[in-house]
Nucleic acid binder design. Structure first.
Lengths: 155, 155
DNA sequence: TATCATGACGTTATTTTATAACATACCAAA
DNA sequence: TTTGGTATGTTATAAAATAACGTCATGATA
């Protein structure tokens, strides 16, 4: 994933996963929802709702903000995308089959967003929380900086 | 801090710290900026920019959005407040003297926001990042759930 | 103390992000 | 084939943030 010379694969894989996952959940991946997911997966960068809206509008003039936000809500519920709070944007989830919290690495140079999926980190958060008595329902980590590629180029 | 029977103390302490810190930084804590900080510290909850605007407007009709956002930007730069990305809101920082990243515990029941300041967590994040080659400049963690008090009441 | 550069704030307008509320269409099971 | 839920269309508005430019205060320096 980290080096995707053939991004079409990522896209196709993401859509396949989505189909399968929705079927197993009894959720309907309608053409519109599928199209939004496709547009999000057009890159590894986070995409803004109104950018999606603009692209969809060139295909179908009836698309209005609620249309996009409803599709995004569906995809979020299914765990197929993550919301990037620090950017007001959305990015495809790389492993929707394993329910998890967003741990995002956001490159400020190339825009790429990756996921940091390490159990050790989850454990560390749980350990840090334990003495506080806080009962978490949701924990999001967003890290900005330079991805490995960009760090190399920059140095 | 976690049990503040006399919240005035938190407020006064926060303002004192702010004065000192700004002086040492050669930054100007103007009446307006001070007032915004005061309003934010009126509770331990995150406050929205437009709520600040409304409260300020009752005191001074000339206050417009840029006024508030500029004050907020200043307070953010000085490390006196944190932005809560997941809420589009702002909360007073409890330890502005030690520069640090936002690690926020947000109670979904009472609204209270606390900070989770444990070096172990920072270490864990650094360890998780190391193998990725990602060079972080900023890392924000926002955890939603029930604070200890509310968890007790709810059970 | 005059002046002048900078930073703080005022003002107007607009952009960006998101949702409310209600109407219509579609689809699947009884 | 009715019917009830879900998906989408539509209109309007709310909520959050910034751009661009003007004015005023402040304090450093000549």
């Amino acid at each position: 994933m980290s080096h995707c010379t053939h991004h079409d694969h990522c896209l196709a894989h993401a859509l396949d996963q989505a189909e399968t996952l929705c079927q197993s959940h009894g959720a309907r991946l309608t053409p519109l929802r599928r199209r939004v997911l496709e547009l999000i997966w057009a890159s590894h960068e986070a995409v803004k709702a109104y950018d999606l809206l603009n692209r969809l509008s060139t295909e179908d003039h009836t698309v209005k903000p609620p249309t996009v936000y409803r599709a995004l809500d569906f995809l979020l519920e299914q765990g197929l995308i993550h919301r990037v709070d620090s950017l007001n944007a959305f990015v495809g989830c790389t492993h929707p089959n394993e329910p998890h919290e967003a741990r995002l690495l956001i490159c400020t140079r190339c825009g790429r967003v990756d996921e940091l999926a390490t159990p050790e980190l989850d454990d560390a958060i749980a350990r840090a929380l334990a003495p506080t008595g806080f009962q978490p329902t949701r924990a999001r980590l967003e890290i900005h900086g330079l991805c490995a590629d960009c760090a190399k180029k920059a140095s």
